[in-house]
């Protein structure tokens, strides 16, 4: 990436509130084309709120968000998807009374190229063979790990330019965590930029190009992922090393 090119996504001084409570106190981050960027930090640091500010579910009160050079600060959530940002949200938020296949189809709801859907669905099933086995099961009756795969698959079905993943390893058995991170790298290689929110900072910093450490609604540190993984403060606080 060249230093002069405008980033794919750029948040500048974003302040977001829940009612009268300020959750983000001026977040500035960037995601460049082709990157995996991770946000790490403790519970309540503002990671998920940052994603909700970007995807239009919780518009910032101050600051700007630009995506591919366009201001999307106040863009409605359903238009943000159309512009190329898809998300696997916190808590998965699948449609519980729809089957796996129906959920995946919902992921592609706004796409015009309906003919390409079967191919994309096969791609999701290749990434997550477990979903293929459960294709006709109601999403609400699946295990947490299977739901997580379905949520990621659903976001992929939108064929996004930027894929945002909120805690993709949450509630997964270790073997699946490895699988999910392999998948993230795989998807990124196929050309999708990724903004990854993770509690599992060790794994996140391993796959990411760059990372931001969030603390109480502010960016506390920003650096290359490798440098962050070697940082003593980060090690002590987020990687569980002494």
């Amino acid at each position: 990436m060249s230093a002069t090119a405008e980033p794919l996504l750029k948040l500048d001084g974003v302040q977001t509130y829940y009612g009268s409570i300020q959750a983000l106190k001026g977040i500035s981050i960037e995601v460049h084309e082709g990157e995996i960027v991770t946000l790490i930090g403790a519970n309540g640091a503002g990671k998920s709120t940052t994603l909700r500010s970007i995807n239009g579910l919780n518009h910032p009160r101050h600051g700007t968000i630009r995506f591919r050079g366009r201001d999307i600060t106040q863009t409605a959530a359903h238009d943000v998807v159309r512009m190329g940002i898809a998300q696997s949200p916190e808590g998965r938020k699948l449609f519980p009374r729809m089957t796996v296949v129906e959920n995946l189809e919902m992921g592609a709801f706004q796409r015009k190229d309906r003919h390409a859907l079967p191919e994309d669905m096969e791609r999701v099933f290749t990434l997550f063979p477990r979903l293929a086995e459960r294709r006709n099961q109601k999403a609400g009756t699946m295990s947490g790990g299977e739901q997580q795969m379905c949520a990621i698959g659903r976001a992929l079905m939108a064929r996004p330019t930027l894929l945002m993943l909120d805690e993709p390893s949450m509630g997964l058995a270790p073997i699946f965590v490895q699988r999910i991170f392999d998948t993230i790298v795989e998807v990124n290689k196929q050309g999708t930029s990724i903004l990854l929110v993770e509690q599992n900072a060790l794994m996140a910093l391993e796959v990411a190009n760059r990372g931001y450490v969030l603390e109480t609604g502010k960016v506390a540190m920003a650096d290359d992922a490798k440098a962050l993984a070697q940082n003593d403060d980060v090690k002590r606080t987020y990687l569980g090393e002494i």
């Binding site: 995807n55 239009g56 579910l57 409605a76 959530a77 359903h78 238009d79 998807v81 159309r82 898809a86 998300q87 949200p89 938020k93 699948l94 449609f95 519980p96 009374r97 729809m98 919902m106 992921g107 709801f109 706004q110 659903r154 939108a158």
Partner: peptide, 19 residues
Amino acid sequence: KAMRATAQDRDAAAMMGIN
């Protein structure tokens, strides 16, 4: 489909591009 999705999860429906 949009109605059923909105009924099951409003935020998720918006994220799918449903008004």
